[in-house]
Design a protein around this nucleic acid. Structure first.
Length: 560
RNA sequence: GCCCCGGUAGCUCAGCUGGAUAGAGCAACGGCCUUCUAAGCCGUAGGUCAUCGGUUCGAAUCCGAUCCGGGGUACCA
């Protein structure tokens, strides 16, 4: 019987590891080597207990036994702690179902009470540093709804990693050099001249949004009427647009630790060389660079692809690949254990080249994880809105936030897998914001708080040590105990899968279980002892739901 | 053409490291407020899990083809 390494009031997940080890031992004693392929998971239905294993099914063949027979054998060899497990049942066609003991679950209530706002945190990433790069929209226009998805995902994944013990930095990288920025400057210049009643020519591939006119007007008031350099217009535009982007992000509760820009990678460092030219020199020394048609290419073999790709254009400007390689090299050299890039589906083809380039520099790329989220399709009036920053046909994130609020936007983006395209029906979101699913969670929290207030008004407060928790005997209470125990497990698993929607789904389940509990049982009654016990579980639900909402960056209101 | 993602209830989506009756929300229909907020709960109805084939004791889940939708395939980012 392995002793729990943690304070047994601490995280509940070590219990799973411990049980899995005991199960593995029983399987071994039954004559089979499980080789770590052992499954011990949450049951899909509480009717099957709290944890379940399909080991008898999986190992029936190598054991030469029928699954049910093997199950008997494994159970016979199983030595479990009765303080944790009440019973182990064999279920056809060959499952082992484990049910937690009441004292174990009651102990969870103690853990929640003790840990409070920290309940659910794990130390899986203790001592490790993670960097999450997201949004990284170039300052050529306001953030769109599409950027919003990446923003919310990045922020929440950062938060999930922090809950798993990582030291996390949120980083925003942007290109403030290159063609798009030049177009931006030229566009502003044209509007500037237009506003001053002078001759102007709007660039063919220019940015057409109204915000360009606003920026031009700003420049006239701030800097006068004599500007001529395109770069002056560019930098003024970048400054202004960035201010807007930061405001939008703040409105969603997102704050970055670092901003990194491309221009810095062009600047000469202490060794008299820029980060970018260092990369080129190193790659040249590796012999993976060719000059052709006046441009500098990286060879296909280095990219593990079939085409050479341009690093420096014949105009002398680098393509996005080169600064991106230099940027990733910098990230690795800064010593992070985990480097996460969050991109939209449109960047799908860019990152393998960048990673390959970094690898070619002789740096370890295994710590880089690239997460791609699919697009947000905006539906307006039954019609799909095509979004393009340049053509100014977009709905800004600001507009959306103003209409439905940050919490709704965050939940909407988080409740679905990032690998699936997201349809955002604008009118539906605007119209029916009252029965939006996020209100279901918020309402559950408000309801819990309200019950606790009722208790307090009757001089009853949730006190784990003073309450008789054995009075919690309803099936609805049993389900809640199961879900409360599960929360740290969900946080931990999400820390590995980096799929925040699992938390959203879990919270929905918890809220549903509580809403149901509310209708079948009254918490605050004349029965003092029962009331106290129920206040304890209500408070545990409140704490857990609040913690989950905190991870998602959604407010948990006390009343609605 | 090639690469990636998706195709599950009328709609939006979970489930996908193969397992116990395929789930939820919205929409529809029928119930539940003298009781801690009905922004809630319960019930009914709704499915060839895109199609075909394969692997397996067992496939929505894995493999191969096909069809449909989205994204990419630049000396744009």
């Amino acid at each position: 019987m392995g002793r729990c390494r943690h304070d047994d009031r601490g995280g509940s997940y070590p219990v799973i590891d411990q049980l899995r080890e005991e199960l593995a031992e029983a399987v071994r004693k039954s004559g089979i080597d499980p080789e770590g392929a052992l499954e011990l998971e949450r049951t899909k239905d509480i009717a099957f207990g709290d944890l379940s294993s399909n080991a008898p099914l999986v190992f029936a063949k190598p054991a030469g036994l029928a699954p049910m027979q093997l199950a008997e054998k494994i159970v016979a060899h199983l030595s479990i702690d009765p303080a944790i497990i009440l019973k182990v049942e064999i279920a056809a066609p060959g499952f082992l179902n484990f049910t937690f003991s009441a004292p174990f679950l009651e102990n969870q209530l103690r853990a929640i009470s003790d840990q409070g706002p920290r309940y659910g945190r794990s130390d899986a990433g203790r001592g490790k540093r993670a960097l999450v790069e997201f949004v990284s929209a170039n300052p050529t226009g306001p953030l769109t709804v599409g950027h919003g998805r990446g923003a919310v995902l990045g922020d929440t994944i950062s938060s999930i990693l922090a809950w798993n013990g990582y030291m996390v930095e949120r980083e925003y990288y942007y290109n403030d050099a290159g063609l798009q920025i030049q177009r931006l400057g030229a566009s502003v210049q044209a509007r500037y001249l237009e506003a001053l009643g002078r001759d102007f020519e709007f660039p063919e591939e220019g940015y057409q949004g109204d915000y360009i006119r606003d920026i031009a007007a700003e420049i006239i008031t701030d800097q006068g009427e004599d500007l001529t350099e395109v770069s002056d217009f560019s930098s003024a535009a970048i400054g202004s647009i960035f201010k807007g982007i930061s405001k939008t992000l703040e409105g969603m509760g997102i704050r970055f630790d670092n901003f990194v820009n491309e221009l810095d990678l062009h600047k000469t460092g202490k060794n008299g060389q820029s980060a970018i030219s260092e990369v080129i020199d190193t790659l040249k020394a590796k012999g993976v660079i060719v000059e052709r048609d006046g441009a500098t290419w990286i060879k296909a073999e280095a990219l593990e692809g079939d085409k050479d790709k341009v690093l420096i254009k014949s105009s002398g400007e680098p393509t996005y690949r080169l600064p991106d390689i230099a940027y990733h090299r910098d990230k690795i050299e800064r010593g992070y254990d985990l480097i996460i890039d969050i991109f939209g589906a449109d960047h799908f083809d860019t990152y393998p080249d960048v990673i390959a380039g970094v690898k070619e520099l002789g740096l370890p790329t295994d710590r880089i994880k690239v997460l791609i989220h699919q697009f947000v399709t905006l539906i307006k009036g039954g019609q799909q809105v095509k979004m393009s920053t340049r053509k100014a046909s977009f709905v800004t994130l600001d507009e959306l936030l103003e209409e439905v609020g940050a919490d709704v936007v965050r939940y909407f983006f988080l409740a679905k897998t990032m690998s699936s395209p997201l349809k955002f029906d604008l009118e539906l979101a605007l119209k029916s914001s009252d029965d939006n699913p996020v209100y279901y969670l918020k309402y559950a929290h408000a309801r819990m708080v309200n019950i606790l207030k009722r208790g307090a008004a009757a001089e009853m407060r949730p006190d784990v040590d003073g309450a008789d928790l054995s009075l919690l005997r309803l099936p609805e209470e049993r389900l809640l105990l199961h879900l409360l125990w599960l929360f740290p497990e969900v946080v931990k698993n999400t820390g590995k899968s980096l799929e925040p929607h699992h938390i959203a789904i879990y919270l929905d389940e918890l809220a549903k279980a509580f809403h149901r509990y509310y209708t079948v049982a009254r918490v605050v009654t004349d029965d003092m002892k029962l009331s106290l016990a129920r206040l304890v579980i209500t408070d545990a639900c409140r704490q857990t739901l609040a913690n989950g909402l905190t991870v998602l960056g959604i407010e948990a209101p006390d009343r609605m």
